[in-house]
Every structure is written in structure tokens, then in C-alpha cells.
Design a protein around this nucleic acid. Structure first.
Lengths: 248, 248
DNA sequence: TTTACCTAGTTGTCAGACAAGCAGATAACC
DNA sequence: GGTTATCTGCTTGTCTGACAACTAGGTAAA
């Protein structure tokens, strides 16, 4: 049975405790620099051993929530909880709740990045994109998996913005939705024309960026992400609870 | 001596070990799913106790690099190293290298968020924004510090998108440039009219969002971020190395 | 008043133990 | 022979107790 179903594992004590501690800090509205209870107090309060408490605190430390000093105690760190950005979704969920939000975030980024890329791209950037497009064309003919090329194409666009931070953010986002890009390029995706559609959209993005047409690049990128979301079965863009909204 | 100089603390064993382990994984080019050495092996190899090894692994786990399963071992996690997004700049750097990139990322996000907010805002969202604008107006008259209100206003716009992920991302970004927002609202900022300028731009954003004018909202947000960058002395938007670029 | 020391409390590290979970081998059953 | 149950060794998860390193604050000596 090579099909790994990723059953929900029983939660670790340290994991649970680190969450509880996080809530505890938030509920008590502890400010930066405030001291947390000592390890011994936490042991008694939660009924676990010191090893568990220490692992929980180590996790919070890794997350940038707290800072510990030997002989003094643990303290709420400066800028607690916002030193890193994380996207947590139910394990392995490739569709449904949360994915829509991720795609919307990505759509915002990609359209802005395409706009910048159209304004700043160099010849080298363009030839890199064209090379990747060519290899995707091959994959399309041979009906091969090419989600890595897909990813690389989007990264090449980000690189053309000359902003390394945007590249890193795209790498991050790419990893988040990597699994959701596979269905476009698998056997069924080729058969249904999903791969061909994605390729057409990529070409449109390339043309706009090569032409230096910033608005067209933005529209092409936004359209590509919109279409990608729809290929995954996400409803086309609209949101619930419109009743409360103001007019149109 | 209240001046806390933040001396470099001696590194913890677990901290050092987690770094070593990370390098070890990279040097050996372990792929996703590959197994790490057992805790006992690591204890012997690095000459530390199991508690230290466990804390180091817990840290890697928190960072999303590895995944452990009781009775099996520790494995390199899928998408290792890109499960979190971090912006690292030299400590406390409020201007100069890197900040320009951060502002550009923020500008992309804000303009897209403002556009969505203009399309989806509810009456409650609008009254929240108006309340914050009113309090900023007071602060403007009384020449008070109001960077928290500034932050809250931007978060209110993000909330109007109905996408909690965008709100979280704005919280994250806000923490990154928090220190850079202070100069606008300090004594000198009030004197030079920086605070007044920011307030005008905020009002323009509010009007566009209230009118439901998506394009005006995008332009207002982009303009606000552009102006904010210029208030900090960042050169107005253009990039180096244009020589290589392709025409205009 | 200043300095040195002492002490209680806290985190960092160590060592050993048992429980829980897993994979593969072995033995029992049809 | 093929299938199922059990056993065994290994690994991680958790517990316990102990000592070292470090800190703040109080106390005694200079």
C-alpha cells in the first residue's frame, strides 16, 4: 500500500502545551518583556514533566515568541509572533478551506510582480522565461509532468523585478501551493486541456512582459491565477456574505 | 546602568546543534523523506545528552525542516526550509539596504488589498476606518505620536477584504516596518508636515474604498506607500542597473 | 559607603528509566 | 503453502532526579 494517506497523528504533549502557552500569553495580554511562569510552575499547572515544558518553550523560542535567559526565566520577545509568516492549513489539504485565501494572496502578489517585471525585465530575464516556456511546450507535446517548470517560470518573472525579497516570497508561496499545481500537469490535466490552458496563459504573460506593457502583464497574471484557482475547483472569485455589503 | 546593551549571550548547545544538523542535512543533500540519524547516534556523534538532541530536533521541527514519528525516526520534511517566510535585516535598521525591498513588497500588497477592500467592504468596516481616521485627526491637532493608529488603519483595510490570510500578512508586514513609521508621527514629522501628508493620503484611501472605486483605491494605496518610502528618504521608486534593460 | 560574599531561585545539561509505536522476523493456524 | 498472530528489537515520547551555570538581591566585612 504505497498510497500514504497521512492519518491524523496523535498530538504531542509539547505541541499541545506550546499552543496553550501561546493562548495563555495572549489571554493575559502580556506585553513585551513580561516574564512567563517558571518551568516548575508550568509543570505543576499543566501536569507534565519538565522535559515537555522545556520542549514547548523551545518551540515558542524557535517561533520567536519568547526569549529565555539562564538564571532569570523566559520572557515575551519583542515583536512576538510576527517575526515570521506562516501559512498553516490542514495537513496535505490541496483544496477547499484555506486554499482560496492562499490563492487570493498569490494573485495579489503575482499581478504586482508581473507589473514590475514588465517595467524592469532585462534581456537575460526574457531569454530565461522563453527557455522555460519552450521546455513546457515540449512537456505539453509529450504529456509530461512539468509543475517544476511551471514554478520556475513564475520565479523567473519574480527575478525580473530585481527585488530579491519578492523572489524569496514567491519561493515561499510556490512551496505552499506546489501540490495544488500538479493536477494541471498530470495525465488527466493533459487530457482535459488544463495543461494547454495554463501554457497559453503563460505565453500571454510572457508577451506582455516582453512588450513592457505593465497593465497587460498585470491582467495576464491575474487572469492566470484566477484560471488556476478555477482549475482546482475553487469558485470563481466571489465571496460569501455579500448581504451585509454596501451597494455595489 | 539602565542602558541595556544586549551583550552576545553564549550560544545554547541545542541552538548550535540545530544549526549543525541543518548543515549536515544540506551537505549530504538529503531529499524529502530521508531519515535522519537516530537520537542515540546524534548523542554519540556530537557528545551531548539526549535532552539537547531532542531540543535541537524540536527546533528544526518547529521550523518545518523535519518531521518525527514515534517508533520510526526523524525525517526531512516536505518543502523543507520554505514553510515559513522571514524578513531578516540588520538589527534595527530603519532605513537603507533592504528597507526599499520591504517597502516595495508592502506596496504590492497594500494596493491589491485596497482594491479588494473597495469591492468587499461592509458598513462596519467603513465605520471602523472612519473612527481610526478621526482619532488620527485628533493626534494630528495635538501633535501626538499615532503610529499605532496608522497601523490599525491599514489592518482595518485588510480586514475589509474578508481574507484572514491577508490580515495576518499585513500584521506581519506591519511589524517589519513599525519602527520606520514612527518618524512620520514624531515631533519632527509633525513639524515638517509629514504626519499631515500621511493623513491626507489615508483620507484619499478611505474615500476610494467607501465609494467602491477599486482602481482609485489601488492608486491611492500605491501612492501612499510610495510617499511613505520617500518620507523615509528612499529614492523615488527607480532601480539601479537600467543600462542592461530592454528599451522602455 | 563601598565591596565582597553568600544564598535562594531559575534555566541549562546530564543520566537513566519506562511507555508507546513501528517494522521485520518468527511461529502458529487453516 | 498461504495467512494470521505473536514476538523482538529499535526508535521516539515522556517521566524523574540530579547537578552545573547563572542571576538578583540580601548580608556581612572593609
Amino acid at each position: 500500500m504505497p498510497e500514504c494517506a497521512h492519518l491524523p497523528r496523535p498530538p504531542r504533549l509539547a505541541d499541545t502545551l506550546s499552543r496553550s502557552l501561546q493562548e495563555w500569553v495572549r489571554d493575559r495580554r502580556l506585553a513585551e518583556g513580561d516574564r512567563l511562569p517558571t518551568e516548575k510552575q508550568l509543570c505543576e499547572h499543566f501536569g507534565v514533566s519538565r522535559a515537555v515544558v522545556r520542549e514547548a518553550i523551545a518551540r515558542l523560542q524557535a517561533d520567536g515568541y519568547v526569549e529565555t535567559r539562564q538564571g532569570l526565566g523566559a520572557f515575551v520577545a519583542a515583536g512576538a509572533g510576527v517575526s515570521r509568516f506562516r501559512i498553516d492549513r490542514p495537513d496535505g489539504a490541496t483544496r477547499g478551506d484555506g486554499l482560496r485565501e492562499v490563492f487570493e494572496l498569490r494573485q495579489l502578489m503575482e499581478s504586482g510582480i508581473a507589473e514590475l517585471a514588465a517595467a524592469r525585465r532585462s534581456k537575460a530575464d526574457l531569454s530565461e522565461m522563453k527557455m522555460l516556456l519552450g521546455r513546457m511546450e515540449e512537456a505539453l507535446v509529450e504529456r509530461r509532468q512539468a509543475s517544476e517548470l511551471d514554478d520556475a517560470f513564475h520565479l523567473a518573472i519574480a527575478a525580473a523585478t530585481r527585488n530579491p525579497l519578492l523572489v524569496r516570497f514567491m519561493e515561499f508561496m510556490g512551496a505552499q501551493i506546489q501540490s495544488s499545481r500538479v493536477p494541471t500537469w498530470d495525465d488527466e490535466g493533459h487530457a482535459c486541456g488544463l495543461a494547454a490552458a495554463a501554457h497559453d496563459e503563460h505565453q500571454a504573460m510572457y508577451r506582455a512582459i516582453a512588450d513592457g506593457d505593465v497593465m497587460a502583464a498585470r491582467r495576464a497574471a491575474a487572469g492566470h491565477l484566477q484560471a488556476a484557482a478555477e482549475r482546482l475547483g475553487l469558485a470563481p472569485g466571489e465571496r460569501p456574505s455579500r448581504a451585509e455589503h454596501v451597494g455595489s
